[in-house]
Each structure stands twice: as C-alpha cells, then as structure tokens.
Design a protein around this nucleic acid. Structure first.
Lengths: 353, 353
DNA sequence: GTGAAAGCGCTAACAC
DNA sequence: GTGTTAGCGCTTTCAC
C-alpha cells in the first residue's frame, strides 16, 4: 500500500480531463459527468462509463482542484479562526475539527487573531476571498450585526466559545454561567466564604461576561459579600505582571481571600505560579479553582480543581452545524443555538483538610 | 478604522477586472498590470495608472484569488504537516509559522498525521493538488528518497524536527544528540549512576534515534553501565499503559534506577504521573529529566528538569528556508541543513539534596 | 446518450 | 504606452 501510494505520487504529472477525452475519443463533458458521479443521472452508457473510469485509473488522473474551485466556487476547505492556536483549549478544538474535516474531505486553514478585531476582520475577508466553504470562529470583538449580515448572505459559519445577543448565526457555546456557579458553590460547600475572582479584559467577550455573571449570582444566592479588592481584572496581553502585582499587594497587606476563582486556564496557571512564588499555601492559605481544565492540572503541586469544557463535543457540534449549512440543509432556529453542559473535576487545590 | 473595514466588508460584491476596464474604457491587460504593480516596468502613463487605482478603490475591487491561483499556480498558501497539532510542541511551532506567514501574506493549512505514513502521503498529495506554494513538515516515516524526488521537482518544502540521511531537501532540526548527552551529564554531575531511559517507538524517527544515541554515548564516556531492564520502550499509541506496567514491575522488584531520562514531553508527563502514583519520591528515590520543555514543568510537583528546544527559532528558520525556495532563490548546500542548539532548564526533579 | 461551445477571472505573449 | 487575444481546466447549458 505504502509503496503503491508512493509510486502514484511520483507519477503525478499533469493529465487533464481533455487528455482523457482525447484518448477515448469522447467529449470532455462526458468525462466530467462520469468523474463527478453524474453518469446515471444523465443516462450514460454503463460501458462508456467504465471506459472513462478505467482510463482515469490508468492515466492516474487527478482533477485540478484550483480549476474546479474557480469554476464552482467550492474549495472543500474550511477556515478556523481563534484567538491563539497555541492555547491548549483551541489547539484541541482545532485538532478535533481537523479530524472531522479530513473524514469529510475538507482541509482546514487556521488563523489566530490575538484578540485583535482588525486582524480578525481581515482574516475573515481573506478566507472569504479564498472561497473557503465555511468558517468556524471564536470571535474576539465583532458583533451580532456583523454576523447577521454574514448569515443573510448565506455564508456558512458557526461561532464557538463566544456568541452575541440577537444573533441569527449558528453557535456552539458552553454553559458558562452554570460553570461559574458550580465553581463558587463547590468552594462554598468546602467552607470558603471570602472568595475572589481573577478575570480578563476585554470583558465584553460573552464567555467571560457570563462567567463573571455566574460568579456574582452564586455569591448573591449564598448571601456572601463580594469584596472588590479581591476581584482582579487583568488585560489579555499583560496577564502575568498584573496578577503578580495584585497578589503581592494583597499578600503584603495580609488581605488575601480564602479562595480564588480564575476564569481561564492561563489565568489559573499564572495564579498558581504566583501564589507559589509568594509561598502562599494552597489550599490551606488560599484555595484555587479554575475555569477550563487541562491535563496537567492533575499533577501540579497541588493538583487543581477545574471546570471542564466538553472540547470534543463543541468541535463535533460546530462541525455538524457547519456541514449542514454547506450542504444547504436548513438549520432551524432551535438547532442553531447550542449550549453544552460543563462538569467539575475536584482535586487538591480546593479540598479543606 | 474598524467601522471602515466593516463597511468595506459589506460592500464586497463581485467586481472583476473587466468591470474596471470597461468603466475606464481601457483594456483588462492594463488594469491587471497596474494592479500587479508592473506599471513602471511596462512604462504605463502615471495618470492612467492613477485612474485605474482610483477606480479600484472606488469600486472596492478585490481580485478573485481562485482565478488568480488557477492562472498562476500560486496560492499564497503554505501547508504545515505534523503528527499532532494538539501536542504543545507542534502547536507552538504552528502558531509561530502562522504569524510569519500572515506577515508575508500567506495562509496556513494544517494537517495532523497521527504518525501514519499513508495519511501523511495523502495529505502531501492533497496539498500539492491544492497548489500550496510550499510545505513545512515533520515527517513520520517517509524517507530521503521520497523527499529528494520532491526536491528534484523543485517543490518548496522544509523538514522540521526530523530528517533523513542523504537527503537533499532543506531541514531544520535541533541537536538531539548533544541534548541527550547534556541530560545524562547533568544527571551524572548530580551523582546519579544508575540511569534508565524511557523512549518511544517507532525508533527510526531521526529525533528519537539521535537522542537514544546521545544517551548511550554519554553513558559510555562516563564508563557507566546501561542496564537493559531500565530501558523502557513504549509504542506511540499505548504510552500510558506500557509505562505504568514497566514502572510497576521495576518498583515491585525494588529495581528502579536512580534516574530516568525521558525522550519527549509526553513521556515525561506520563512518567511523572506514574511515579507519583507509585509514591516514588522524586528526586530522592528516582530523579527525572525530560527532553522537550513545556511551561508547566515549572510548577508540577516537583518541578521538572528538561532540555529546551528553541521553538521560535525552529519556526523562523524553517519559514525563511521555505520562503527562499518559493521566491526561487537558491538554497545552498550549506544553508539547507540547519541544526539548532538546545539548552537545559534545571529544576527540582534532578537536584540531589 | 453524447457533444459543442461558452465562460468563470485572470495573466501574458505578442501586436500595434 | 496600450490593446488583442489565447488559454489555464473545469462545469454546464443547450443542441443534436
């Protein structure tokens, strides 16, 4: 098999549809129809069909994908736009999407936005010009209006991880609010009362906003006070320094809360590092729970409790929704807005001894 | 800027080069030449040029990239093929390449092979049919002959991370042998004598083979014996179980070595987990050093000593080599084979107290 | 059942 | 300096 494939490869010369036609003394049309599986539909003679197919095999014909794409406007390529493909959450999603795409004959073009709107916009435009058949996108800071326009133009696309109010586009997100509540309630059940939160700006990103909302709601329901000093808000591009400074200050004032809830895996890792640096004991001095679980939270010191997102499911649902649009199947109002449940992995960082 | 870009976006109708030509009463050729910056070269009147450019602006003309690609055979797209884009080493490389590509006007198509030769071959073929301008590839199990053929055909490509003997293609790898020696020597300098190695099959992958070789060489130079029982060799797809079993057995026989050298970041993580599971103290019972450093080795328990690969540099050099080939600049025999130095990050897991 | 021909949007050789 | 023309490889309408 391997050797055979390799041979095929070497031979890959440029044989076109008209070469086949000429060889066989038939028309290009016929060849095209057979190749595209429309033989039956057009009532083409079974023998003729076989002759074509055999010749295709013999000459090892491979269609010129560019010509095909040019002609049809279809490229069998989809675009994936996220803030940073090196972030573990997104790289896992990308991997899963790539697998599904491969199985369905699609290639995947990847773009990282760095949470930059202009870059994101340029990337969407470029991908459209490249005539990708669809887009799966975790949008930084565009808005409902923008995607609605895209939707009205019937350009297949699915938003993941983040979405906008009053948006008619398809989307797959997770239940951020419940996730945050689950996190806070777990802390409360362990007896923590003074709870702080470390979040990231820009805060209008829906996933962040909903997590923040969930936090406040859970605190309110438990009739716990939210101390603004314990709510640390850091910018996307200077996380580490800002977290260090804030924690140092609280620590020197002997004013750390009993627990921190961090809003994504990067914040969690950074927070862990900085607390260790300050020799703050986890969880005895300060407990730590994070949104978004990653493999290594299992063997850090201490291991870290985290809210887990169903990465594979997100990818699958998003891909299915996209494929549906590409195949021109209607996506009903009910189908197009998917919200998936989260779960919690409880580990040492929140267990009171 | 944002609003403006959005407006442009909405307007994106299909205006072609002949629309411009017609509007202006000039020929398509002229428009094409101006747009492609060949006005001077063809001695085109500055005024005419301006008229064209203005019209392009006014009508918000955007070239049809598919038509362009079809005509020229250039797509401003490069392919990146690795074993698994969700692996942190590769996702970081992909990210860096993507950045460089973006800055140079290229898009990136990503493919994961799962170390499967047939899949890899199919992907290379597909990308070639899609007429990507070049390929950066960490090849699983192809061979020098294959890539030499590719090279003879002047298809731009660069191998990273792994390469083959007698290969004429460009490649960027790291100094695996020295890295392994550095690791072993560090262990020796800390007083460890009984040193084991955990490696992965298929072992003919050059990076793995070289690391193994470096290990043996360093042991020999130090006149230390290599105990075959301490050399654990696990398959790519069943790492975890095999490592667990081997360690359990050695542990129950009270025959663990004083230190383990693991050949990639996955092996390191898995080994750490399993040793912890067995309540083996690191480094007092067994020390641990890994090839390939990742962020979180800094805050595991204990933190882990590791050989660091210059990820950004690998990406940069590979991209530059690729660009050079795409631009038809000669890559000399000296330039085409790059081997980058590694470094060591010493942490708790190897420090004898 | 099959073929002729047009044309997608662009580039480039050649003509004037 | 600028225009004419052919054609990349494919799909698709329409004619026979």
């Amino acid at each position: 098999m391997y050797i055979f494939a390799k041979m095929n490869f070497q031979m890959a010369k440029k044989v076109s549809i008209s070469d086949i036609a000429e060889c066989l003394g038939v028309s290009k049309t016929l060849v095209s129809l057979v190749i595209n599986g429309k033989a039956e539909q057009y009532g083409i003679n079974a023998q003729t069909k076989k002759r074509v197919l055999d010749k295709v095999e013999e000459l090892n014909y491979r269609p010129n994908l560019l010509a095909q794409g040019f002609r049809t406007g279809k490229t069998n390529t989809i675009g994936v736009i996220v803030s940073d493909i090196a972030n573990r959450f997104y790289s896992r999603i990308a991997r899963k999407i790539e697998d599904l795409a491969w199985k369905n004959g699609y290639s995947v073009v990847i773009c990282s936005t760095d949470e930059n709107v202009d870059k994101e916009l340029q990337q969407i435009k470029l991908l459209q010009e490249r005539k990708v058949d669809g887009l799966i996108i975790s949008s930084s800071q565009l808005d409902a209006e923008f995607f609605n326009t895209l939707n009205d133009a019937h350009f297949p696309h699915v938003l993941i991880d983040r979405r906008f109010e009053n948006m008619t586009s398809s989307s797959v997100v997770i239940d951020n609010q419940s996730g945050a509540q689950m996190a806070v309630n777990h802390l409360i059940s362990q007896g923590y009362r003074k709870i702080g939160m470390i979040s990231i700006t820009p805060q209008h990103i829906s996933s962040i906003r909903e997590r923040v909302h969930g936090f406040y709601q859970a605190m309110e329901l438990a009739e716990l006070e939210v101390n603004p000093l314990w709510n640390i808000d850091v910018p996307f591009d200077n996380m580490e320094n800002e977290i260090r400074n804030s924690l140092q200050q609280l620590h020197s004032q002997h004013n750390l809360p009993e627990a921190f809830f961090t809003l994504n895996n990067n914040l969690t890792s950074t927070c862990l590092m900085q607390l260790r640096e300050l020799s703050v004991k986890i969880p005895s001095d300060v407990a730590l729970i994070g949104f978004d679980d990653v493999l290594y939270f299992d063997f850090t010191n201490p291991s870290i409790t985290a809210i887990e997102q169903p990465v594979d499911l997100i990818s699958e649902q998003a891909f299915n929704l996209l494929l549906k649009q590409i195949k021109k199947n209607d996506v009903t109002k009910e189908e197009r807005s998917i919200c998936l449940p989260i779960s919690i992995n409880i580990r040492e960082s929140t267990i009171k001894r």
